[in-house]
């Protein structure tokens, strides 16, 4: 029983500066990918084949951060043609790992790297999609999971608002019954300030969470920084904990700045 193509929701997947890993949330769906393609009309998804970047769509998934002058204009076009815009993954919601260049003199990097720096169009900052256009829904994670993206698609197919878990990784550890790596083993785990959604994969392997799902709601970074210091991390090491995959998320950026400022006192 296949739905009429004319009434299937039209979906686009766009890519900005990224590793392509969040698009794999679709391409790794297996059989579900074929099911998805029968329920929605995938009008633009370059890596999978369909090309129609300027099509009017019901839902646009946007991977990657804005990092070139051309991106600035492209994201406006996408917004204007999309009923619902969903930013997927750390790059799209916080600027991603390449946001680590923000604050550095990236123009001088370009000059050092490339023989023809004038041919490289790169903005000084790598910024999230919501810096430039209204975003209807953000999915955190580096990478996002198939469950997250299908959750959004299914919610929108049913005409309800998608839900996302903004609680802490700690809650997932407790639910899985994992021993706390921070308390029991003294490992500097980011779980107490990091958003849930991965299923506490890192503590499940007995290692530290490194914050790839970004900041949780109402997390206490001061308390965690103080705990890291008690574990013997110096201020630079504490700053680095917050300055990784989601370094430009305001809560993590402030925690990193605070640690560095403490080190300079």
């Amino acid at each position: 029983m296949s739905a009429n193509a004319s009434v299937r929701p039209r979906v686009a997947v766009h890519k900005f500066s990224s590793c392509d890993g969040c698009q794999l949330a679709f391409l790794n769906l297996g059989e579900d990918l074929l099911t998805l393609a029968s329920r929605v009309d995938l009008v633009h998804f370059a890596e999978a084949g369909p090309l129609d970047a300027d099509a009017e769509v019901d839902v646009a998934f946007v991977e990657g951060s804005v990092s070139t002058p051309e991106d600035l204009e492209r994201i406006q076009r996408i917004r204007a043609r999309s009923r619902v815009l969903v930013a997927i993954g750390a790059c799209a919601v916080s600027g991603g790992i390449q946001g680590l260049r923000n604050g550095a003199d990236s123009a001088s990097w370009v000059a050092r790297i490339y023989d023809h720096p004038e041919a490289i169009a790169s903005l000084e900052h790598s910024t999230p999609i919501a810096t430039h256009v209204a975003v209807d829904f953000e999915l955190w994670g580096c990478p996002v999971t198939g469950t997250q993206v299908l959750g959004v698609v299914n919610a929108l197919l049913l005409g309800v608002s998608p839900r996302d878990n903004a609680d802490k990784v700690c809650t997932e550890c407790k639910r899985q019954g994992y021993p706390c790596v921070l308390v029991a083993r003294g490992i500097p785990c980011m779980g107490p300030v990091t958003r849930a959604g991965c299923g506490a994969l890192c503590p499940g392997l007995g290692r530290d969470c490194y914050g790839c799902f970004g900041p949780a709601e109402s997390a206490n970074t001061d308390a965690l920084s103080a705990q890291f210091a008690r574990l013997g991390l110096d201020t630079q090491a504490i700053a680095r904990r917050f300055q990784s995959i989601n370094s430009q998320a305001p809560m993590f950026r402030q925690a990193a700045d605070k640690a560095r400022a403490a080190g300079n006192e």
Binding site: I97, Q98, R101, S122, R240
Partner: peptide
């Protein structure tokens, strides 16, 4: 594809 400067921001990391 815009450059992401990995090699530069690896500098100073543990």
């Amino acid at each position: 594809e815009p450059p992401r400067f990995f090699e530069k921001f690896l500098e100073g990391r543990h």
